[in-house]
Design a binder for these strands. Structure first.
Lengths: 226, 226
DNA sequence: CATGAAAAAATTGTATACAAAAATCCTTTA
DNA sequence: TAAAGGATTTTTGTATACAATTTTTTCATG
């Protein structure tokens, strides 16, 4: 499948090759993907409209970075939106989705046991994606995925960083609890468990940044905190 | 203030000059704004990423159109998001915002009495915008405004159509009730009143479309319903 | 008169060129 | 050595050119 240029550039950010604050040089990207600057610029502008990239007139575009407050607010908003999806999914899930959810949780159990971080990252996307679909509302789904997209460069960091042992057990258990609530059709419980789950993710992320910041204080700032 | 090209093109859609389903010819836009196709294309792609415009490979971009189901879902999602903003605003509003809200409602009273539709449209944006800010969460605000943006081409139609007497009293009274709840600090009430307000807006919009569709059945379809 | 195919015109997608601005490097001076 | 200033290189923003494709028009045919 020839991914669109837009997706290919987004992937550079989402897989961590380009980090918040990093510059996107148009010519380099053009050379890399074997096209001219024109389509690169169009793709980058689109990603800027999606909030993944920041465009500064007459200066290079950069991967969008959030300061602490912005990250807190982003997670708070995401918590509410994901909670909406979970609540609705609890009421609207069909049989196929229930089966898939059970299967995901089983796989997640295994991933968590094996401490396979890249698989856990993948699983996180699938789990939440399934709930987005289950809400049966294209706009809610769009909003949820756009929100998630924006904070992905940060949440991914936690799973990518070489020498950092992320806690995979907690998110897995939370996923399982949310899944149980959804399968039981308990909308309120699914929603509040989801809010807790996202709040916990923020706390882990903050702890991660505090640790890596402590380690890297001497080195050049890379714009993570704007 | 020289509005950005992106904003200028968006305005064509938002003020109803371009309606859902209408094509955006790159050369015409370029001539109109006195630039070449390059910046036009970049602006249009950005608006596509924002969901206001739809891009079809190798064919003209068109103003995005929703069918009935999509419109229902969009309003349902918007109701929840606006409710979140209203609930939070009820708890977080500061004194300046309380004053401004009271002033807006007073003005709105007058606009409603004068049956000034274009002022009512403007007021609607200001009222909801104030609540978006009052939620004190940039991501929630961004989500709310993006959502609102997407359905604006439709809600605007109601206020613009020449020979259609929109009911300005109902939305005004609802705004007032929401404002009262916000000023009283009642988050739950503000939220549920907001949900009702948006649900009512959808009903009015559907009635409007049913009427105009009944009148215009003979004429060429313009892509309103995809 | 409607239908369908072929030709003509219009439109998009991409590369390239060049001016304007920003970033970098290099030299001079205290 | 550090700082400042200016020249050089890099990078962005926009226009333009052209091929590929779509849309419209024209015209022949049943």
């Amino acid at each position: 499948m020839p991914h669109t240029l837009r997706q290919q550039i987004a992937d550079l950010v989402l897989n961590g090759e380009l980090k918040p604050g990093d510059r996107l040089d148009e010519q380099s990207l053009a050379d890399r993907f074997g096209v001219s600057r024109t389509p690169i610029r169009e793709a980058v502008r689109q990603l800027a409209a999606s909030g993944l990239i920041e465009i500064r007139p007459r200066r290079s575009a950069v991967v969008r970075s959030f300061d602490r407050t912005e990250l807190n607010e982003a997670f708070e908003a995401m918590g509410e939106i994901e909670a909406l999806c979970a609540s609705r999914a609890a009421v609207r899930f069909n049989e196929a989705e229930r089966l898939r959810l059970r299967a995901l949780i089983a796989t997640s159990e295994d991933i968590s046991a094996r401490a396979d971080r890249s698989a856990a990252l993948e699983m996180d996307f699938e789990f939440h994606g399934l709930l987005h679909d289950g809400a049966r509302n294209w706009m809610l789904k769009a909003v949820a995925e756009e929100t998630r997209l924006k904070i992905t460069p940060y949440s991914t960091a936690l799973y990518i960083m070489e020498d950092y042992d992320a806690d995979l057990g907690t998110p897995h258990r939370q996923h399982r609890a949310i899944a149980d609530a959804v399968l039981a059709g308990d909308a309120d419980l699914a929603g509040s468990l989801m809010r807790e789950h996202i709040a916990q993710a923020l706390i882990s992320l903050q702890a991660f940044f505090d640790k890596t910041a402590a380690r890297g204080t001497a080195r050049k700032q890379k714009g993570k905190a704007r």
